[in-house]
Amino acid sequence: MSRALVKFSTLTARCRNRLHQERGDVPGWVLITLMTAGLVLLLWGVAGDTLVQIFKSSMERVGIIGK
Rank of each mutant, 00 (worst) to 15 (best):
L43Q: 02
E22H: 15
R23H: 06
K56E: 05
T10A: 15
S9F: 10
A47L: 10
A13C: 10
L43R: 10
A47E: 04
I65K: 05
V26M: 00
K7Q: 12
G45L: 05
S58C: 09
K67T: 07
G38N: 03
S2H: 15
V40I: 09
L19W: 13
A37Y: 05
V26Q: 04
G24S: 02
F55Q: 01
I54Y: 08
Q53Y: 04
N17Q: 12
V46R: 06
R61I: 00
V52K: 11
L11F: 05
L34W: 03
M35W: 05
L39D: 04
G38I: 00
V26C: 02
S57A: 15
V30Q: 04
D49I: 09
A37S: 06
R61A: 11
A13V: 06
G28Q: 03
V26W: 06
T36I: 01
A37K: 03
G63Q: 11
G66S: 14
L42N: 03
F8G: 08
F55K: 06
M59P: 03
D25S: 05
L39S: 10
W44N: 13
G63D: 09
E22V: 09
V40M: 07
F55H: 12
L34I: 04
R23G: 01
V46F: 07
A4N: 06
G45W: 08
G24E: 01
I54N: 07
K56N: 14
I64A: 09
L41C: 11
D49G: 14
V26N: 01
G66D: 11
L5Y: 12
P27H: 00
F55M: 02
M1K: 15
K67N: 10
A37P: 00
T33F: 06
L34H: 02
L31F: 07
L19D: 09
L39W: 07
T33N: 13
H20D: 14
I32L: 08
E60S: 03
C15L: 12
S2Y: 10
C15P: 00
G63V: 02
V26I: 06
V52P: 00
M59H: 07
T10H: 09
N17K: 14
